[in-house]
Structure formats: C-alpha cells, structure tokens
Design a protein around this nucleic acid. Structure first.
Lengths: 202, 202
DNA sequence: ATCAAATTTAACCAGTTGGTTAAAAAAAAT
DNA sequence: ATTTTTTTTAACCAACTGGTTAAATTTGAT
C-alpha cells in the first residue's frame, strides 16, 4: 500500500508544481491539478486539505531548492574564484532542471510578501553570507580583486545566474529566435563565471 | 467635462497598474480596482468593457516602457562603452520609477505565452539588435574588447540591470535587511556599467 | 434653466471555484 | 474471507466574480 500512497502523493505534487509555477496560486485550479495528477477532486482534497496547504508545500520546497545550495556555497571554504565558479555552475544545473522556480518564487512573494517571513533566517544562510562577504573584503584589501561592495558582487552573481532563466520567455524570443535555448542556457554556466571573474580580477 | 473624463480614466489605469502588477491578471479583482480608483464597478465597466481589455492596455503599456528604450539604445550610434553606460543608466532610472514592471511582464508572459506574439517584431527592435551585435563583433575583432558572444553580452547587460529590481522582495531581504533599497538600487546605475566594461575591456 | 454626459445605487445573474459529503467500488493488507 | 484503506462517483453548496441593467442623481456645458 505504501508505494501507491507515495506514488499518488508524488503525482499530486508533480501536477501542483507544474500548474502553480505556470499560473500562480490565484490562477491555478484544483480541478486542473487533479486532472493532471490523474485523480479526481475528492481525492485531491483527501490528501491535501486545501489549495493553500498544497501551495505552501510546493512553494516552500521550491524556495529551499534555491536558497539551500546558495547558503551552502556561501558557507564553504573554497577560494573566492572557485566559489564563484561553483555557484554559477550549480545554479545553471539546477535551473536547467527547474527553470520555472525563480519566476514562481519572485512572483508569489510579490503577490504576498508575508510568505517570506517564515523563510528568512534560514538554515545558516546569514552566516554563509557574512563569511563570503568577509572573504570578498579581504580579497579587496589584499589587492587580489578590484574594489567592489561585497553585496553588490553577490547580487551580480545571482543576477547573471538566475535572470536568463526567469526571463527566458521574453529574452529567448528576443535574442535567440527559435533556437535551442536549453543548449544556450547550459553553455552559459562557465562563461558567466568567467565574465564575473574577469571583471573583478586585477 | 473633458478633464473629468481623462482624470477618471487615468485613475482607473493607475489603480489597474498597481493591482495587476501586484496580483496578476488572475488574482486581480475588478471591485478592488474600482475601489482604488475611487469609483464603483458599474463605472469601471462603463469605461473598460472587460477585465481582459483593461489588462491588455495596462500590459502593453508596461511592455512598451521596457522594450522601446532598449530598442532605441541598441539602435543609436554611440560608441560601445558609452552605449552600455546609457542602457544601464536608463534602465536604472526607469525601474526606480516603475519597479514592478519586469516581474509583471515576465510573469504574465509565463502564464500566457500567446501575449508575446503580438509584441515581437516591435518597432525596429530587431534592427537595433543587429546593429549592436555587429558593433560588438567589430569591437572583438579589432581587439577593443575580449572575445564574447554578442548576445551573451546583451543578456548580461539586461540581467544586471533588471534582475535586482525584479528580485527585490527577496534579495532585498536577504542582502540588505531593512536598509534603504531605493538608495542602494539607485547607486547601482554606474557601478553596473563599470562592472560590465571592466569585464570585457582589454 | 436646460440638456447631455458622468456617476451612483442597488439589485441581479450566470458561471466558476474551493470544498464537502456519503455511498459505492476497487485495491491491498490481514 | 474479512477488514481496512484508497479511489471513484456524483451530487451538492456557499461564496465569489465578472458583468449587466435600469433608474436615479450629480455634474458640467450651453
């Protein structure tokens, strides 16, 4: 029995991820999620009491998928340039897999800013941030890299890693008409890190 | 009489911009838009036949606000570095004014990809793109800048200019707790251009 | 004062949506 | 074979939503 239960639960979550990411909380329909999961509405409510509960689970899971690895990379002991390469490579990999997460999160937090409250102060993300910021400042002082505000550098790394995926429906059309965007986005992994390092190194 | 009409129309559009940007097409309520415009629902429908029509107007207007200046800057004859500075400065200025536009557009195109069809092949944006891409390639060949794929450079410029605004509710919380984000985003205008130019110049 | 346009009031409607319920049926566990 | 759990069926409901209507009222222009 266990397997069937887990399978159904996973079918529901899969469907919910797709529908919520595409249409948001307000635009998603429980009936559509049920259809896509291959079950009926009654069973959907049997597993997840309400749309809101289902959404929260999907949302939190998606949020963690982005913030956890960031926290991990920021907290580790790699040398700065290597750290930058690691983050770029990892975000590229994870966003190839789940390209709709950034837009999904940004949009839903924009709609309901309260949602971020439960998720800040998250699993040592603050410590990692402090650590890497200190690392950047040291690199600046020792003359390893050009002067730059640490937070701005982190912002630039995230922007370059994430935005091309979030804006794909538009920039893909605008810059790469009908070409294989998957391939293009994949190939950015290394060049983005190079772009950043080139900018800060002396 | 004319003035009142225009004033009411503008009140409606203002309200619609705010509500649609915050909640999207699906999440917005006509009643809420009417309330915010200081009128009633009957009058709202008297001016704009349907939610969809009202939304289309707001959406198209927002889309143009981002794409037109991009097309203009890409098409003009400035020297490359100056062009980069121009785009960064202009997007910074316009996004300080309308910070919710990027997320609004990205999200709504993601929800309904058909919306982009009417808006591509837009006011010579393709020509501008070609022109600047050629300019970048020339700069690479002449040894003025390091080798880089022109489209990737354009993507990086847009990413660095736009993403900090789109992701503000999250990155603001994460990187700049409780600080004056307006001031911080404003101050990026020049440093972003420097960051890019530093990366590509020889 | 008169006329036309703008705005309000308030009731109404049909369709949709999240959610419930109870009984039956199917599947799995014992 | 019996019991328990999962799933379906199908009908139902209350709340909400976009949109309409018609009459009354206000407002501005002439």
């Amino acid at each position: 029995m266990e397997k069937k239960i887990i399978e159904t639960q996973e079918n529901i979550l899969d469907a919910a991820r797709t529908i919520f990411a595409q249409k948001g909380l307000a635009g998603a329909r429980m009936q559509e999620i049920a259809d896509r999961a291959g079950i009926n509405k009654a069973l959907l409510h049997y597993y997840y009491r309400s749309k809101e509960k289902l959404f929260e689970q999907v949302f939190e899971e998606a949020f963690k998928k982005l913030i956890r690895p960031l926290a991990a990379f920021l907290a580790d002991d790699s040398e700065l340039f290597q750290k930058i390469r690691n983050i770029c490579k990892h975000y590229n990999k994870i966003l190839i897999q789940y390209p709709f997460i950034p837009n999904f999160i940004i949009n839903e937090i924009n709609t309901n800013p309260n949602r971020i409250i439960n998720l800040i102060s998250f699993e040592g993300v603050a410590e990692g941030k402090q650590k890497t910021m200190a690392q950047i400042q040291t690199a600046v002082k020792s003359g390893k890299i050009r002067p730059i505000d640490p937070r701005e550098l982190i912002m630039n790394i995230i922007s370059l890693s994430v935005f091309p995926f979030a804006s794909r429906p538009i920039t893909g059309q605008f810059l790469y008409k009908n070409e294989d965007m998957d391939q293009i986005l994949k190939s950015r992994a290394d060049s983005v890190a190079d772009f950043i390092i080139q900018s800060i190194k002396i």
